[in-house]
Amino acid sequence: MKENRLRVLKDRLVLLAVDESGMSTVEYAIGTIAAAAFGAILYSVVTGDSIVSALTNLITRALNTAV
């Protein structure tokens, strides 16, 4: 009887050690945080003065072309 309980306990511990069902949730969370950080960095770069002025100059030159 005692050996049977120890075997069941051992089997449960082995199952818990190799179970990876929660890994996808952690990977999604890390991916979401990384995407948000990348978006914040990209937003700060695109809204910076040098990028805005470069895009404004490019659009102005494109609209003022003489045909």
Rank of each mutant, 00 (worst) to 15 (best):
A34M: 13
A37L: 06
V8E: 12
D49V: 15
Y43I: 03
V52K: 12
L42C: 14
T25D: 03
F38A: 11
G22W: 07
V52W: 09
L9K: 13
G22F: 11
R5L: 04
G22L: 10
E3L: 15
V14G: 01
K2F: 07
T25R: 11
Y43N: 03
I30A: 04
K2Q: 15
A62N: 07
I59A: 06
A62T: 00
K10Y: 07
F38D: 12
A29T: 07
V8Q: 10
R7V: 10
T65N: 05
S21Q: 02
R61M: 09
L42M: 08
A36N: 13
I33Q: 14
L58R: 06
A54C: 08
T60I: 14
A36F: 06
A40I: 10
K10G: 00
L55I: 14
V26P: 02
N4T: 10
A29H: 08
A17F: 06
L6K: 10
G31M: 10
R7M: 13
T32I: 06
T47L: 12
L63R: 08
I33V: 15
Y43S: 06
N64K: 11
A35E: 07
G48C: 05
A35V: 07
A17I: 02
V45Q: 10
S50M: 02
M23F: 09
T47C: 03
T47R: 11
V26M: 02
Y28A: 07
R12D: 06
V46N: 04
R5P: 00
G39V: 03
V26F: 14
R7Y: 13
A35C: 12
K10V: 03
T47G: 01
G22H: 04
A29F: 10
F38W: 11
T60A: 10
R12A: 02
L58K: 06
G48W: 09
I30T: 01
L55D: 04
V8T: 11
L16T: 05
I59W: 03
I51H: 01
M1S: 15
A34V: 14
A34P: 00
R7N: 13
E20Y: 02
R61F: 09
N4K: 11
I41N: 09
S24T: 12
L6Q: 03
L13E: 00
